[in-house]
């Protein structure tokens, strides 16, 4: 449980960090909260030649509101977001998702952007970014670009970022007045990796018809999966519609098999969670208990 030898870099500015990333090539890992990386280093599963510690970059430790999004810097802790009434009210899904991530102790170190960069298909924050249709801002010595959630996650634990690129900010779209959000997962114990997770954002117009519906699945495949919902727009969220979507979620996922849960069981969980979550939204609003 002692890591192999590595070089350690602690840049003082973002430019220094980007220069270092550029020079170190692809055998460097960025250290933010370290809640996934450090155990892997200690178990020697990951043996990068270098660690680039971004914790001294004060400019990344900011939460701002801009262009309809909550902008969360790369060193902002999950715990900081969890304790920020503004963040929770502007992105209400955070209030539901954050408490499910690990434990208080891990959230006090773990970062939102770090979780996105880690791209664990069972993790809560990639699912949250996906269902909200958020994005990340990425910097390198070559410039900056914005990558939408749908383009960020490439495969299991793999993003579409180049080795010299750093996620500097995550953009979480702000809540809209009529839109309602839900996040549910099934884990064996609180804080465990979810066997299945489902998140959705639903908006019904005055006549009760669906004007927006995003439904995303976690732990269900290579990356967070969006369920096809376009054909539901303009229809009512009836029991039959819920059943259709639950079946779609069930059929559309390709979850892993391991000793905790078979793929079949995980698919079943995806279906059950989807069905229960959407059924709650199908109830008249006044009956909803958050």
């Amino acid at each position: 449980m002692k890591p192999a030898r590595f070089d350690y870099y602690l840049p003082a500015t973002l430019d220094e960090a980007l220069d270092a990333l550029h020079e170190l090539g692809d055998d460097v890992k960025v250290l933010a909260g370290g809640q996934s990386l450090v155990p892997m280093l200690n178990m020697r599963l990951a043996q990068p030649a270098a660690l680039l510690d971004i914790n001294a970059l004060r400019e990344l430790d900011t939460i701002t509101r801009e262009n309809g999004a909550l902008r969360v810097g790369a060193t902002v802790r999950q715990g900081t977001l969890e304790r920020s009434p503004e963040a929770l009210s502007e992105v209400p899904l955070l209030a539901q998702a954050l408490p499910l991530i690990g434990h208080w102790q891990t959230r006090n170190r773990g970062t939102l952007c770090g979780s996105l960069a880690h791209a664990d298909p069972s993790a809560e924050l990639p699912l949250l970014l996906t269902v909200l249709g958020g994005s990340v801002e990425v910097r390198s010595t070559r410039g900056s670009r914005t990558v939408a959630a749908g383009d960020l996650f490439a495969s299991y634990f793999t993003t579409a970022l180049e080795p010299d690129e750093l996620i500097v900010t995550a953009n979480l779209p702000l809540a809209r007045p009529r839109r309602r959000y839900a996040f549910q997962e099934f884990a064996q114990r609180h804080g465990d990796f979810a066997l299945a997770a489902v998140a959705c954002a639903v908006e019904l117009d005055e006549s009760g018809r669906i004007s927006h519906l995003a439904l995303a699945l976690g732990g269900a495949g290579e990356m967070p999966l969006l369920v096809e919902t376009a054909d539901m727009l303009g229809t009512e969220l009836t029991a039959a519609a819920v059943a259709t979507l639950a079946e779609r979620a069930w059929a559309g996922c390709d979850p892993p098999n391991d000793h905790h849960a078979s793929a079949a069981f995980r698919r079943q969980l995806v279906r059950t969670l989807t069905s229960r979550m959407l059924t709650a939204f199908a109830q008249p609003q006044e009956q909803l208990v958050r």
């Binding site: 178990m43 064996q188 114990r189 609180h190 804080g191 465990d192 990796f193 391991d258 000793h259 905790h260």
Partner: peptide, 27 residues
């Protein structure tokens, strides 16, 4: 929840506390 799990080849599958689950106060 607790079980020391081996696959049919005798490989140990429950080698960390993410795979060997013990009840915590919450459970």
């Amino acid at each position: 929840m607790e079980e020391i799990v081996y696959d049919e080849s005798g490989a140990l599958l429950s080698g960390t506390f993410a795979d060997y689950l013990c009840p915590t106060a919450a459970e």
